[in-house]
Design a protein around this nucleic acid. Structure first.
Lengths: 165, 165
DNA sequence: ACCTGAACACCGTTCAAGT
DNA sequence: ACCTGAACACCGTTCAAGT
């Protein structure tokens, strides 16, 4: 496998879904790719920028499942599903969204569609809720009713759209 | 200063508000307290449990400013303020809330007062929004209108209380 | 252009041993 | 009971040197 930013990201995604963020080190990544750790730094600025690349990749995955015109609540649920696929997805995308919001926000939840305020609201709610949910799974705490709970709260926040103040 | 779980927590809080989570290592903490790193482990199980202690301490701080009967939106704003005081407060409390929700939730936002669903909704929204805001401050990205934005979204979610479905 | 090898400055945690 | 000292198994990142 030719070493590129893409192959590095893909391998990272693989480690992430299998073992989680705790096992995603630059050294571990290098071992998996059978290169020296330092080799990674020719293709990727640092670990943080790799996490942003990962965040962008998850956005693309959500977009593939959600057209621009998708119902915002359905889009938020899709985002949640994708975040859950990658063990610590929410924590990573929280970082990615902080640094490069526009590149990480799913098209169906963009500020162009929902307005900056609600777009940010639904993103931060989703990232916060799923981050907590993923932490709980990690510690074997039962995240009882997580999906329904999240759906209800997201719906409440989105209700403003159909009845603006 | 006698080494106890409390003095360790207080020193951690001090490092946190001055330098942030990146500088809060067990080794750094030990240096500040003028003991060997291993000494900390007699008083505290591990770093994670220290972060939970910190989270509980922030809850107490919010409770001191917000009576049980405080307006939920005002309480959420107070929580935000306290989280902002400690550079990476949101990230830490996100962890603490995941592990020990009841011990970390401010009394004015408890599930007893608001119901489990809304309590969790407002907590995860606050933690997500402030975590993003703190990351942005860290990277010198202007968190434009963060307070008003957050207030509007929190209000939308809390609006369900006065008009339940 | 792309990668290796070695180094630097760190981590969290454990545990025998001291007092 | 409480702490030291040393060790273990890691980190992210840089940089000269190789091809």
């Amino acid at each position: 496998m030719a070493l590129t930013a893409e192959t590095i990201t893909d391998t990272a995604l693989d480690i992430l879904s299998r073992y989680g963020l705790g096992d995603l080190s630059m050294r571990r990544l290098a071992r998996e790719l059978e290169v020296q750790p330092s080799a990674l730094y020719w293709h990727v600025k640092d670990k943080q920028s790799l996490l942003v690349l990962i965040s962008k990749s998850l956005k693309v995955e959500v977009d593939a499942a959600c057209p621009v015109t998708a119902d915002p609540l359905a889009a938020a649920m899709s985002l949640r599903e994708v975040l859950l696929k990658y063990r610590d997805g929410a924590e990573i995308v929280l970082l990615g969204y902080s640094i490069a919001a526009a590149d990480v926000t799913p098209q169906a939840l963009s500020s162009e569609r929902l307005g900056a305020e609600i777009s940010q609201g639904i993103l931060t709610l989703t990232l916060g809720a799923v981050a907590v949910e993923q932490n709980r799974r990690l510690f074997d705490i039962d995240p009882a009713g997580a999906a329904e709970n999240f759906a209800a709260n997201a719906a409440a926040m989105l209700a403003v759209i159909r009845s603006p103040s």
